[in-house]
Nucleic acid binder design. Structure first.
Length: 108
DNA sequence: ACGATGACTCTTC
DNA sequence: GGAAGAGCCATCG
């Protein structure tokens, strides 16, 4: 598959993330079928600005529940997530086990 | 063409 | 439980 398709799948999966939940790059990569391409998922998310309709990329974080990226971006994502009911402290998702959404479950 | 880098993750110490 | 090393693939100088 080419990376364009990969990116589309990432976007599509990201759009399926329920409100108030978050997921990780690795989880998305795994759901697509390429568990080792977590970095590419990050790239896809970074390119979601061209997505139509827009992708809630703020629901995608690191596997440890930490918001990666530049503070200018992380701060905004933190706001949005908190607004959806996700508790966040110092750019890190609290109660991660509860708010973490596994794409594989939705695919079953 | 080559080496370095990065919104990552996993295994080990 | 935190820190370090290795693996992964695409992009950039």
């Amino acid at each position: 598959m080419n990376q364009a398709l990969f990116i589309e799948q990432v976007w599509d999966l990201t759009r399926e993330i329920p409100k108030g939940k978050v997921t990780s790059y690795g989880a998305i990569a795994k759901a697509i079928g390429t568990p080792n391409l977590s970095r590419m998922v990050a790239k896809a998310i970074g390119a979601c600005g061209a997505a139509q309709p827009p992708v809630p990329y703020y629901r995608v974080i690191s596997s440890n529940g930490l918001l990666a990226g530049d503070p200018s971006s992380t701060a905004k994502r933190q706001e949005l997530l908190e607004r959806e009911g996700v508790e966040i402290k110092n750019l890190k998702v609290q109660n991660l086990k509860k708010v973490f959404w596994n794409p594989l479950i939705d695919l079953e």
